[in-house]
C-alpha cells in the first residue's frame, strides 16, 4: 500500500476547494430555460388528446415512455428475486 505524502485533511480540503471552483460557473446558469424545449411543449400540448389522461406525468411515464416503466418494473422484480435468494431458508 502506497504511503500518502499529503496529509488526509489537506487532501479533503483540496478536493472540496477544487470542486467548488469547478462548480462556480454552474451557479451562473439560469434555471428553467432549456435550450431545446420542443419535446416538452409537445407533451404538454398533446398528451391529453393522445392518451386521454389528465395527468401529464402519468401520460409520459405510462404511455410515451412505457418502455422505461417496463424496465423499472423488471428491475424491481429482479431486486425482489435477489432478496428472496439472499434470505432463502436452507434446510
Amino acid at each position: 500500500m502506497a504511503r500518502c505524502s499529503v496529509p488526509p485533511k489537506l487532501a479533503i480540503f483540496l478536493i472540496i476547494a477544487v470542486t467548488l471552483i469547478l462548480l462556480l460557473p454552474a451557479f451562473g446558469l439560469s434555471f428553467g430555460h432549456p435550450l431545446a424545449s420542443g419535446t416538452d411543449q409537445y407533451y404538454i400540448d398533446h398528451s391529453q388528446e393522445q392518451t386521454g389522461s389528465n395527468n401529464v406525468v402519468t401520460a409520459i411515464v405510462f404511455d410515451f415512455r412505457g418502455f422505461d416503466t417496463l424496465g423499472e418494473a423488471t428491475v424491481l422484480f429482479i431486486a425482489v428475486l435477489g432478496v428472496a435468494m439472499f434470505f432463502r431458508r436452507t434446510h
Binding site: 392518451t51 386521454g52 402519468t58 401520460a59 405510462f62 404511455d63 416503466t69
Partner: peptide, 10 residues
Amino acid sequence: FTAGIIPVLN
C-alpha cells in the same frame, strides 16, 4: 374511466 390502458398498467 378514461385514459385507456394507463389505469390498467397502473
